[in-house]
Design a protein around this nucleic acid. Sequence first.
DNA 1: GCGCATCACTGAAGCGCTTAACCCAAGAGA
DNA 2: TCTCTTGGGTTAAGCGCTTCAGTGATGCGC
Lengths: 363, 363
Amino acid sequence: MHAGRPLHSERRGRQSSSSGRYTDEVPKQPRRITLRDIAEETGLSAAAVSYALRGLQVPPETQRRVREVADRLGYQADPIARALASGRTGYVGVLCGSLADVWQQDIAAALGRKFLSVGRHTLIADASNDPELEATLASQLADQRVDALIVLPVDPAAAHWKEVARRTVLTSIGDGLPGAATAAEVVFDNGAGVTDALHRLVDCGHRRIAVMTPSRPTTPDRPAEAIAHQVAQSLGLDVTLHPSPHDLDGATAVARTVLSSANPPTAFLCLADSMAYGVYAGARELGLDVPDDVSVMGFDDHPLSRLLTPPLSSYRWPADLLVDLVVKRTVKAIDEDKLSRRKVLAPAAKPRGSVAPPRTTRR
Amino acid sequence: MHAGRPLHSERRGRQSSSSGRYTDEVPKQPRRITLRDIAEETGLSAAAVSYALRGLQVPPETQRRVREVADRLGYQADPIARALASGRTGYVGVLCGSLADVWQQDIAAALGRKFLSVGRHTLIADASNDPELEATLASQLADQRVDALIVLPVDPAAAHWKEVARRTVLTSIGDGLPGAATAAEVVFDNGAGVTDALHRLVDCGHRRIAVMTPSRPTTPDRPAEAIAHQVAQSLGLDVTLHPSPHDLDGATAVARTVLSSANPPTAFLCLADSMAYGVYAGARELGLDVPDDVSVMGFDDHPLSRLLTPPLSSYRWPADLLVDLVVKRTVKAIDEDKLSRRKVLAPAAKPRGSVAPPRTTRR
DNA sequence: GCGCATCACTGAAGCGCTTAACCCAAGAGA
DNA sequence: TCTCTTGGGTTAAGCGCTTCAGTGATGCGC
């Protein structure tokens, strides 16, 4: 490459006008405008241009001149080269526990929009509820040199988070990552939600309650599950935990199984609305009525949940606030190297028609 | 930088053992393993290692040796440096017309998974149904040096696609991009769907039909809308077009307005299920029954659509096939520079309970 | 036994940018 | 008047990889 086309010397030859090029080949890619082009045009050095464009080393007049030329030439800094030189890519990874979850889809989309508005692109990955895939993806994203990684963890207790936090700015949503040096954590007070939900169900007369959770049996120490157990104990309830995927078919299958078991629960508490949808579908398949035969409560309060018949009782997190906080704190960690304190969001109950007293005739 | 720390010469000094470093500062980032490290370890040149790791210039034994050392050292090629050197980033952009659309969310997620399985990361962007934002994002993604851009266009007729296609491999989903040299197009036969839908509604007795479309008034020449007009003409129908956002609140507002107009339609044909959800909500607000007071048909057949009461009539596209095709053809275009022919997908009607004859009492 | 093609690999240039270090002229302070 | 700054630059190194153009050793045909 160092002979065939004497790149620099050639370019040096004045303007970017179609000078002494092997002209008859049409350049499909119009050749990128580089710093050097602007440097030539303005008579400055490339470094000066680089500084000027970034507003450093502020000689206002020169800055204006450079910017003007840059605009005229349609200059766009090459993010790749910039990343290599500066060590920051401008990318933020978003690792979702399960993108089959409508709520996580919304959050991912909102994060994407918000980060874009501060000049950063997002790389979205989906762990599909699989802790191992999650580990792989996390390390893969870190290898991609993302400036930060936002994670909605499948397994918050996993060992690798510590390592990931060492490699990049790490922010968690939903659950905290104990032991890892996270830059920010915006976590849900799932405990409060679960407690409230179980009490409501109990007050309504339910005793046998199925809890659908995204967790694998290997992570029984997640806050939500642990608290479900505690509350169940203290109230003397018959609570069973059922790991479930977030997609409709998967959740429906779980619900179907649970509902057709020997002594089925009279109520479902789903740790994600997506799973509750599965309960609706499963119940319908079996000819059971919601809420008369089976009550359902969800978590996340996705907009579509209130569209169902009956509208789904759920718990809403302030999604806008959440996204705002996450982006703001993450950016702060990237730019100023400042970590933030953990922020806990409280759930707002949205009781709706999907909960009713259990039919006494049924058992 | 060229004085303080004589990078190369220092590294050259044998092993990567903690040689003569300013030791007492703990290296938080454990220093990346580079090609050079492997080169030293194996006694080869960096170039040789580069070739070996990529399976080029195949001396099987050396290759094994190199790979072994690489594994042991936990080498991971720096994608940024690779991108800068080779000119391909390994990123694929996905530009969605509107991520408020549940179906597009699913497609985006599926594309992400699929591309990941072939070693490429996706940058997802959301045009929020805004043609101008779409143009901005398209060019921004191209600037990011994505190897390819997958687009679910808001405005397929926009002029900038031609330019974008010149800059990167461009694939479109849904609508084709007339005039642009796309690498692949997987388009929907919306015409067939719309025609079929209108006929069904007519057969059912409907004459005043509202069509909800994602388009802005500025793009009246989209296939679907054009055909809606044609069919309406030929059947002598009273068809009105209503641009609508995909999010529930936005679509609900549109539906509410339409439904409370002087001479409301008896049926809605929505070019996306997400919009149909809005009709359900709007109708409910006004105390109207679906389907007795107003019939609704959707497009895309999102899984949740069959969960509604009544289940939404819709048209399904083979999403898996779609994603497969798009990824396969895009990768082919990137790697082998081969363009593919346009592929047209036919819709499969999924008639369900949301369509019924108009109530004759109402007018 | 000699020329020639392979093989296996090396050296160096280059991707387009950032950044540390240096440098010169002009204004300020003494 | 002379030194000290400071503003406004410049130079060059370097990011970690790819890739082109060699280059000695082999292997081979005849």
